[in-house]
Amino acid sequence: MPFPNIDPIAFSIGPIAIRWYALAYLFGVILGAGYGYLLLRNERLWYKGAPPFPAKDIWDFAFWAMIAIVVGGRTGYVLFYNLPYYLSNPLEIINTLDGGMSYHGGMVGLMLAAILFTISKKGNWLSSLDLLGAVATIGIMLGRIANFINAELYGAPTNLPWGIIFPTDPLAVPRHPSQLYEAALEGLLLFLIIRIATHVFYALRKPGLVAGIFAIGYALARILVEFVRLPDVQIGYLYGGWLTMGQVLSLPILIGGLILVLHAITRPVSKLRA
C-alpha cells in the first residue's frame, strides 16, 4: 500500500511550523485531563469515595504533566537510546526538534509528577497512578498516529496486504505499520479494557489495580509489536540479535504491573455500593 500523503506539518504561522507530533502531545494531555476530570468527579468509582485529588485540580496537574512528559521522555531517550552521541554533543540534549523521545521515560516522568502532586494534595498516590493508567492510553494512541504521519518507527518488511511503503524508507519496500499496531493495542484496546475495569468491575476501588492493568497491558503490547518493529539504528538488536531496547525497558514495567495487581487484589474490598 502507498503511504498516505500527509504533511507532518499541520499548519504554519509565519515562520513557525506546528507539527502533528507536537499536537499529539498537546491534545493527548488535554483530552486525558478532560477524561480524568470525569473520572475524578465520579466519586463512587474510587476507594472509600475519595479520588486522589479534587476534580478541579486536574487542570493544574495537566500543566505539570506536559512538562514531566517532555522532560522524562527526552531524558529517557538520551540515556537509553543515544547516550554516546549526546555526551559528545551536550547542547543537542535540549533540541527536541529531532523527535528523540522515549515513551518509557515520559511514563516515568508522568508517574513522578502524579505522585508528588497527589502527596501535595494529601491524597492516595496509588490512586493517582490508577488515574494515569486510565487516561494515558489516549495520549499513547495519538502519539503513535503522529509517528505514522512522520513515517518513523516503522516495522520490518512484510508481504501482508496492509504493508506500507514509507517515503523515508531507503529500500522502498512494504513494511509493517508498527506505529498503527501500537496505537490500536496500547491505545484503543487498552483504553477499552481499562474502561470496563473501572466502570463495570469498579477497579478504582482497589488502589493500584488499574495502574497494574495498564502496565501489564502496555508492556505486553509493546513487547509483542517490537518483534515486527525495526529497532533504533544506533542501537540495533541486543543479546544475539533477537531483543530490542524497547523490550528490555518494558520488562520492568511488566514486573511492576504484576506487583501492583497482586498488591491491589489482596487489599479489602471497598464497601461502597455501585
Results as ranks from 00 to 15, higher is better:
residue 129 L to T: 08
residue 131 L to C: 12
residue 120 S to W: 14
residue 117 F to R: 09
residue 134 A to Q: 06
residue 151 A to D: 07
residue 130 D to T: 15
residue 158 T to M: 14
residue 128 S to E: 06
residue 158 T to Q: 13
residue 121 K to V: 14
residue 132 L to Y: 04
residue 120 S to Y: 13
residue 119 I to T: 13
residue 150 N to A: 06
residue 130 D to V: 15
residue 137 T to H: 05
residue 148 F to N: 01
residue 135 V to I: 14
residue 136 A to T: 15
residue 117 F to E: 05
residue 146 A to W: 03
residue 148 F to I: 14
residue 151 A to G: 11
residue 135 V to Q: 07
residue 110 L to A: 12
residue 134 A to V: 07
residue 128 S to N: 09
residue 129 L to S: 09
residue 141 M to D: 09
residue 140 I to V: 13
residue 154 Y to V: 07
residue 142 L to D: 00
residue 117 F to K: 09
residue 113 A to F: 00
residue 120 S to M: 15
residue 152 E to D: 07
residue 141 M to N: 13
residue 156 A to F: 08
residue 157 P to K: 13
residue 130 D to M: 14
residue 154 Y to R: 03
residue 143 G to K: 05
residue 155 G to H: 05
residue 127 S to A: 07
residue 151 A to S: 15
residue 155 G to Q: 01
residue 123 G to Y: 02
residue 160 L to C: 10
residue 130 D to C: 15
residue 157 P to R: 12
residue 128 S to D: 10
residue 118 T to R: 04
residue 139 G to R: 05
residue 121 K to A: 10
residue 117 F to L: 08
residue 148 F to W: 07
residue 129 L to K: 10
residue 122 K to Y: 06
residue 132 L to S: 01
residue 111 M to D: 09
residue 149 I to V: 15
residue 124 N to V: 13
residue 123 G to D: 02
residue 147 N to E: 00
residue 148 F to Q: 09
residue 130 D to N: 12
residue 154 Y to Q: 07
residue 158 T to P: 10
residue 151 A to N: 10
residue 141 M to Q: 14
residue 152 E to C: 09
residue 125 W to I: 09
residue 149 I to H: 02
residue 133 G to C: 10
residue 147 N to G: 06
residue 148 F to M: 13
residue 124 N to K: 11
residue 113 A to R: 05
residue 154 Y to G: 04
residue 158 T to Y: 13
residue 135 V to W: 00
residue 114 A to G: 02
residue 139 G to I: 10
residue 125 W to K: 09
residue 125 W to H: 04
residue 127 S to K: 00
residue 115 I to G: 02
residue 127 S to C: 00
residue 122 K to W: 07
residue 159 N to V: 14
residue 157 P to Y: 13
residue 144 R to D: 01
residue 149 I to S: 05
residue 123 G to T: 03
residue 151 A to V: 14
residue 117 F to A: 11
residue 144 R to Q: 02
residue 112 L to H: 06
residue 122 K to I: 11
residue 125 W to Y: 10
residue 137 T to Y: 02
residue 155 G to A: 01
residue 140 I to Y: 06
residue 131 L to S: 12
residue 134 A to G: 06
residue 132 L to K: 03
residue 133 G to E: 08
residue 142 L to V: 00
residue 125 W to T: 13
residue 139 G to E: 01
residue 111 M to S: 15
residue 147 N to K: 08
residue 124 N to R: 11
residue 148 F to H: 08
residue 125 W to P: 11
residue 145 I to L: 09
residue 136 A to P: 12
residue 140 I to R: 00
residue 147 N to R: 07
residue 120 S to K: 15
residue 147 N to L: 03
residue 158 T to W: 09
residue 138 I to W: 03
residue 128 S to Q: 11
